[in-house]
Design a protein around this nucleic acid. Structure first.
Lengths: 191, 191
DNA sequence: TGGGGCATGTAAGGGGTTACATGATTGA
DNA sequence: TCAATCATGTAACCCCTTACATGCCCCA
């Protein structure tokens, strides 16, 4: 039920479904994603509910576009979502489930290989987020604390993203050392 | 598609669906959850696929129980899941989406109130995880690095859980200070 | 002329939540 | 006797992913 509010949030500036998808790719991807096949029908539904109004056609050159904007009702719906406090719980992190069961791999080497792959992935994501931060800081002298509200709050989420990835990479390294330091458990003979 | 493998992982010791649900509540909840209405049908399906075998009735006293165990095929299915490397991507964190759009709240005070609630929630979760760690360490002298494999790897996930929550609480505090230090933006008159 | 990006959509199916249904056992 | 816990399940619904369908425009 969160996507509805995220669309409301994105539509502080009027956009088409296609534009919104690009916005997901560029900015929101780190904590949310949505496919066009989910966005288009939801925009229609939200227009019927009076949260958005859409206007077709006034495109520059390309094919006909449908651009949506928030209505007053949409504004207050978004505000009440935020006012009701943090939406938490039910995070599903598949790779942590895998780590939890790594004992099912036969030897330490496989477990270490797993953790190494995880570290590489997290390090790569960290690098891209750091690059985003560097570029942003270079392009806007107000970065980070003098940014206008609609950029300052997104910047907060970038900060957490970087801190978490940094922490996760460090944790992977720590895991690898700790696994390496352990004695190989003797495999039970017979059954 | 991960729940299937998580059930395989949990069933290194034979258990009923009901027992598995309790296991989720106690141990896995921090990175995965599943309801009984999801567990029961999936266990049946996995038995039909030959990944599990179930035996009914041999309960102590309570009502008839159906206890499942992993087959050889189930073992290798679990191993190949782990061997294929980390399952990553598509994490959805609703509260980060909310922070991203906090500019839609009219004043700084509301944003600070939001962050404070988030911090309280995270601090409470951190406290429970720390308590788990303290008790575990007190009950087993092998904690943490001399634990047997099937407890050592779960301990690694506990470590990350604690580190992340600690980081998140600190981030919330930092956000509150940074928001407080900002000048209140003048609301545009008229529009 | 053919591929790639722009642009909007529908259909099918998997995963997950909430609600409902049933019944036995245990303890207050 | 009544509520709580144990125990297993079905049904309806929502969210999301993958695949498919359509058509325009631009550039090589």
């Amino acid at each position: 039920m969160s996507l509805k509010y995220i669309l409301l949030g994105v539509l502080s500036e009027s956009q088409s479904g296609y534009d919104i998808k690009k916005y997901f790719e560029n900015s929101l991807k780190n904590f949310w994603n949505a496919e066009l096949s989910q966005i288009y029908p939801l925009l229609q539904k939200m227009e019927k509910e009076g949260l958005l109004n859409g206007t077709t056609g006034d495109s520059d050159i390309g094919p006909k576009k449908r651009v949506y904007g928030r209505t007053e009702k949409g504004n207050s719906e978004l505000e009440s979502w935020l006012s009701e406090g943090p939406v938490v719980g039910s995070e599903r992190i598949a790779y942590l489930a895998q780590v939890f069961f790594l004992a099912s791999l036969k030897d330490k080497a496989s477990a270490i290989a797993y953790m190494q792959k995880l570290k590489d992935y997290m390090a790569a994501r960290l690098a891209t987020l750091k690059a985003v931060e560097t570029e942003w800081a270079g392009q806007d002298a107000r970065y980070p604390d003098a940014l206008p509200d609609d950029e300052f709050y997104p910047q907060l989420t970038l900060t957490l993203g970087i801190a978490r990835l940094r922490g996760t990479v460090e944790w992977c390294e720590e895991c690898i050392s700790r696994i390496q330091a352990r004695k190989e458990e003797p495999v039970e003979a017979g059954q």
